[in-house]
Nucleic acid binder design. Structure first.
Lengths: 147, 147
DNA sequence: CGGATGTCAGTCTAACTGAGATTT
DNA sequence: CAAATCTCAGTTAGACTGACATCC
């Protein structure tokens, strides 16, 4: 009964595909001692300039509590800075540094390379279709916020 | 620069989609005290009859060492049995029980429901396209072995 | 003997939960 | 006071690694 085959269920397929993609990315990021979450934080900061930790966590779709360690690590590496918000002393404003911008560029190329390797079996049109379909099955909070 | 947007990279999108799918499935499986790996094992056993642990792990795409605990748990729940292979006493043959077959049916419906919820935004044709594209970007070992 | 099999212990990424201190 | 913000400690799922005893 083919509808029971695991290999035909998207909940299964998407998990395997994710693992595969994760491996492609992880290999490349390892030499920088950074993980994809670090990249997502830097990427988001570069888009927005700087942000308080909470909203930043929301943008990256990471739990606020996990963002603490991510920023700790990026700060220790000199890629971001954490400074208290004078308008609201509960908040910490995170901003990207020059070193962060440099690393972001390098990582960006690695992401692109991983994407290319992952998508090698597909044509350009198929890649666009895949991006569109994946985007549509995401919960709104996970979709990009671009116009 | 749109090519740098995280939301457009498949390595990112597929990870978010996988997490979303995982949550949909996990919620439903929780009441059975089973995880999706357990389902995969039962599903594979039902397809094949019975199998030694190693080949079973390969089929399910789980590490052989992790399969040990999975079979332990399924055996404790009475859903599978482990018996020594008389032809090769290193091997343990795992086979599904009546209870396992029952649970498999129930879990199968939950998987179907999760898949439907995940794919709700897509048409039938789009669902088939997504399955096809995801399958094609998987490493061969992860693809279904059906004709 | 070398190699396969199952097992065990431990590490790692990622997500999540619940609690606490500080400030608004 | 209630609520927001950041932090910390602990748990879970899943994948991975290296080692070991047993057996072919």
């Amino acid at each position: 009964m083919r509808t029971n085959r695991l290999a035909g269920r998207v909940v299964w397929l998407v998990g395997r595909a994710s693992l595969h993609a994760q491996r492609l990315l992880h290999r490349r990021f390892a030499e920088h001692d950074l993980r994809k979450q670090h990249y997502a934080v830097l990427r988001s900061l570069a888009d927005v300039g700087s942000a308080a930790q909470g909203p930043l966590a929301d943008r990256v779709a990471v739990d606020r509590s996990d963002m603490v360690a991510l920023v700790d690590e990026l700060e220790a590496a000199g890629h971001v800075e954490r400074s208290p918000d004078p308008d609201d002393r509960r908040r910490k404003i995170v901003s990207i540094t020059g070193s962060g911008t440099e690393v972001l560029d390098e990582l960006g190329e690695l992401v692109e390379a991983a994407d290319d390797e992952l998508l090698a079996p597909l044509s350009e049109a198929e890649r666009r279709t895949l991006v569109e379909l994946l985007t549509r099955i995401l919960p709104p909070a996970d979709r990009g916020r671009a116009p």
